[in-house]
Structures are given as structure tokens and as C-alpha cells.
Amino acid sequence: MKWTAAQRLRIGSGRQTLVLGVTAGVLVATTLTGCAGGSTGDLTAKGTCKPEDVTLVQSGRGLENEYYVSVDAGARAFAAAKGLTHNYKWIASEGDSGKQLSQIKSLLANGGECVVLNIDPNEAAIVPSMVKAVDNAGAWLVTQWNTPPGLLPSAKDSHWVAHMSVNGVPQGYDTAKALFEAMGGKGSIIALQGILDNAPAQERFKGLQKALAEYPNIKLLEDQTAGWDRTKGQDVTQSLLTKYGDQINGVWAASDSMALGALSAIKGAGKTGKIKVTGIDGLKEALGAVADPSSGYVATTQSTAVQQGAYGLNFGFAAATGQIDPATEPADHRAFYLKPLPVVTAANVATVGDPADTSKLNFSDLWAPVGQQVQS
């Protein structure tokens, strides 16, 4: 397979360099380095678990966040489809990486090789420890969103079944362009970033930077992290409104949670509708705001939360029960972006369904959610 320079991304990690190609919208790892050194587990064994013996585990920050409610809905739908509702567990990290790692190790100690984990790591830095713990237990892991630069599942380690994400660059770019157009192509904005160690935060901000390069009359006054958190998004926006006042014409946020916090701060300042806002993730409240012309909420993206919960467990379950041997799967089945969904604006928001709707999930074609069509 050959890639053009525009399709090739080099990621350095110490002395290791990983070359990723983006082809058909799929994140493909061409050279991978394992991270589970010292593992005592059998890294190439095909799963032999009986379906009824599998424990399904979904981990994210917490169900007070609407995004994770939808992730949980997708995960529960998969568990129900396999008759494993009684074997499904949701564990909340509450934004604490140490707690999340401890929870996982405890579950592995009790469940062993028939545990399937679909994990949204709180921070990329804890992924190597997760992978090592899973390898040692002989269990099965799918990671979502976050992994350290240069570190993805490899043929040498079948227990880290897959890493799945959504390409954040077009998300950040498309929502930024919608924001800039709503501002008339000129003015100044502030930006709310997610956790800086998170791959989607980095990708989405790159998308914003790409859009800024195309709109010379838009100025980025300042960017700050609000940690994916609604309250922090409100607090940071209030602080920047105090600092910059009427200079701010727009707020670009890397998630809807932070954007909704910003919207509250804007309302508190008496500037609802005067300052435009965009977010990402397709939360129901954000979709409602986009549908309301007076809110100033210009755009978001469609949610992939249900897909990530359901299909992440499906990949792990298939490995645990021997339906697939991850070590023999192609690289684009081990590290990939889900198929992209269009940006949501007032023009199409009426066509977007409930973010927690599980009725369209299809588990018969394991790899159907993988990748996206190349756009000419």
C-alpha cells in the first residue's frame, strides 16, 4: 500500500517512530511497537471463552455526562443482544486515571481471561499499564480515543484487540468553519480545549488551527483547557469574558459539554446570541440549542457514542470467543477511525436522531463500522 505525503503522519515517541497512513478514512499502523514488556500472558493465544462466560466491562468518566449515557446505552444494547445483560458492568473513572487503572486491575483479578474491556482511558499515559494488566490476565481490551503517540495494537499482542476513535481534525475544522461563517468571516474567538494529553483534543484543535489559516480575518485571542468539563467550560469562559470583554465574538469548544458551559457564561454576561458558540459530540442539549436560532449555538457533530459502546464490546467479544484472532487481522482492523458523520447545523439538525438511539446497531458484520469513504 502506498500513501502520498498528505496521507502520511509521522508520530515520534522517544527513539520510536510510528508511521500512520490515512487511507479510506482508516487509521492504519504500518510499524507498531508493543508496550507490554514483562507480560506473563500468552500474547498470541486465540480466545476460547464460552459466550455465556464472558464479562463485559465499559469504562468512562461518568454517567452524569450525557455522552457516557449514550456510550452505556450502546454497550447495554450489545450485552442484551448476546444475552449477557447480567454479565455487563459499567465502571466510572470520574476523571481519575489512578482510580480507573485500579478498577481495571481489580476486575481482571476477579474475572481473568474471559473479561472483555471497552475502555475510554482518562489519559493516554495510562494505556501501557492497562495493556500490560490485560496481557497478564489473558483478558481482552479495546481502547477508545486515547493512546500515547506511536503506540497502537500490534500483531505481537492479540489481547489488545483494537483501538478505535473518530478523526478529530475534520470535526474541529468543520465546526470552526461553521462558527467563522456565522461570524461573517471576521472577528475574534476564544477556544476551549479538552484534556491536553487526549488524542481527540489534540486532533480537534488541529482542525481549528487549519480553519484559522483559511480565515485571516478571524483572530484567536486565547485558548485554554477546560478538561472536557461543563463547569470548567463555564468558569474559563467567564474569566476570558472578563479579560477580553466585547472583543470576543465566538467560542470554539472541543466538546459540547464545555460549549454548553460557555453558553451559560455567555447568558450570565447578557450576551446570548451575540457571541456564537460551537461544540463537538452531538449531545441532545446541544442539538436543541443548534435548533434554536436565538441561542447562538451554531454547530456540533453527530454523536458516535452508541457505536463506540456497542461495537467496541463486539470487537472484544469476538476475540474472547475465538471468532477472530486479532493477531492475524489487518492493521486497519486494529487501529481505526469510525465512519465519519456530517457536522450538524441549523440546516440539518431536524434530521438528527436521539444520540442514545440503539435501534440501528447491527452486530452481524463485525467490521462494518470501520473506516470511511475517501473524499475526492
Score class of each variant (00 low, 15 high):
A5I: 12
A5V: 13
A6C: 11
S13R: 14
Q16E: 14
G21K: 04
G25I: 08
L27D: 01
V28Y: 01
T44E: 05
D53C: 02
F78Q: 07
A79M: 11
A79I: 12
L84F: 10
K89M: 05
K89H: 11
K99A: 14
Q100M: 14
I104K: 07
S106R: 07
G112R: 09
C114T: 04
I119T: 01
D120R: 10
N122H: 13
A133I: 11
V134Q: 09
A137L: 02
A139E: 02
Q144A: 07
Q144L: 15
T147I: 09
T147V: 10
P153E: 03
S154R: 05
S154T: 15
D157P: 07
D157Q: 14
H159S: 06
H159M: 06
S165H: 10
A176L: 04
M183D: 04
G184M: 03
G184T: 02
G184W: 08
I190N: 04
Q193D: 13
L196T: 13
A201W: 08
G207K: 05
A211Q: 04
L212H: 02
E214A: 12
Y215G: 00
E222N: 05
L240Q: 14
T242A: 15
D246V: 11
Q247P: 00
A253H: 01
A254T: 07
A254W: 06
M258Y: 09
A262F: 12
S264T: 13
A265E: 08
I266K: 05
G268H: 09
A269N: 13
G270F: 14
G273W: 13
I275R: 12
V277I: 15
I280L: 08
E285R: 11
G288S: 11
V290P: 06
D292C: 09
S295T: 11
Q302T: 00
S303I: 09
L313P: 11
N314M: 09
T321K: 04
G322E: 05
A327H: 02
T328M: 10
A331Q: 12
D332E: 15
V344Q: 05
T345V: 04
A350K: 15
T351E: 11
V352C: 02
D357K: 14
S359T: 13
F363I: 10
L366D: 12
S376N: 11
